[in-house]
């Protein structure tokens, strides 16, 4: 009798869990669905009460209008260039710094590592005015180096790589040292190949934050052809005073769809990448 009651209660609990799960998924998904559907709607379908979910037809005129209004091709290219170069150099800097801190000797090693990690506590906004002034003095406004260089230093990556290097088996490095390999070779030939999970974690986190970076490009770029995607998207916002939701949502889809596609394709890696910092930290 008790067992029956118990299993009945458990089944009810399970049903409740499914209900909550469905609610959570709905809250996460519906705004995205609303965005996608709106991007296909014509003006009179959007400005209607009560709101209708489905567009009458999958009309692409909002996309055509968005692409005609602002240079999306440039935005995309600029985002790719700044992300690939920025995240790539950042990774390399993180690897070499972590290698130095773990395997090389220097009198102020602890201090240098502390200096690197403490930078995680300095929000970007605290230093935007001096950095903006410097970049303006260098004549780097509206340039790729102006967008990329100030955010290039690796703090998070250095921290994560150091944690990982400390767990590496000493025997591998001793073998490399016996082979007479230089430190440079030891890093790139021996350590990097066996560090793939940490590398991909750091890479994915850097790529995502680089791709979505908004405040800094907003400050140092004012020419449309040099804008990155998040920045360029806002050009669609107030073109004529009243927001044209259909066109704006088409632009938003163009910005979010590639990221979502990559996310769903690589979700396992991305998910483990996002938690890497938490688990080792």
């Amino acid at each position: 009798m008790a067992a029956i009651v118990d299993s009945g209660r458990r089944r009810a609990g399970k049903a409740g869990s499914y209900l909550w799960l469905a609610a959570a998924v709905a809250v996460m998904v519906l705004p995205l669905v609303w965005m996608i559907l709106a991007s296909f709607k014509e003006r009179d379908e959007i400005y209607t009460v009560p709101a209708q979910w489905l567009p009458a037809s999958f009309d692409l005129s909002n996309y055509a209008a968005a692409l005609a209004a602002v240079p999306f091709g440039n935005f995309f290219l600029n985002s790719v260039i700044t992300t690939v170069i920025g995240a790539g150099i950042k990774m390399a800097l993180g690897l070499t710094t972590a290698y130095a801190v773990v395997f090389l000797e220097f009198p102020f090693k602890k201090f240098i590592f502390g200096l690197t990690v403490f930078a995680l506590l300095v929000p970007q906004q605290i230093v935007i005015i001096p950095n903006y002034t410097l970049i303006a003095e260098l004549g780097w406004i509206n340039t790729y180096q102006g967008i990329i260089v100030p955010g290039l230093a690796s703090a998070f990556g250095t921290f994560l790589f150091r944690q990982h290097f400390l767990t590496l088996p000493v025997s591998i490095l001793e073998a490399a040292a016996l082979d007479g390999a230089s430190h440079w070779t030891r890093l790139w030939r021996f350590i990097v190949p066996i560090s793939a999970p940490t590398m991909s974690a750091v890479a994915l986190v850097s790529i995502v934050s680089e791709w979505n970076e908004y405040l800094w490009p907003l400050l140092v770029v004012d020419r449309a052809d040099m804008m990155t995607l998040p920045l360029g998207l806002t050009l669609l916002q107030n073109n004529d005073g009243v927001t044209n939701w259909g066109v704006l949502m088409a632009g938003t889809v163009l910005v979010t769809a590639p990221v979502l596609a990559v996310f769903f394709a690589l979700q396992r890696r991305i998910v483990s990448g996002l938690t890497a910092g938490a688990v080792t930290g």
Binding site: M28, W34, M35, N212, L233, L248, M249, L274
Partner: peptide, 21 residues
């Protein structure tokens, strides 16, 4: 996966789509 997805999206895009919501 679905719950984490918005985390990787651009804050600007997220803000704009919710403005319409």
């Amino acid at each position: 996966t679905v719950v984490v997805a918005p985390y990787v999206l651009s804050g600007v895009a997220v803000g704009l789509l919710w403005l319409f919501v």
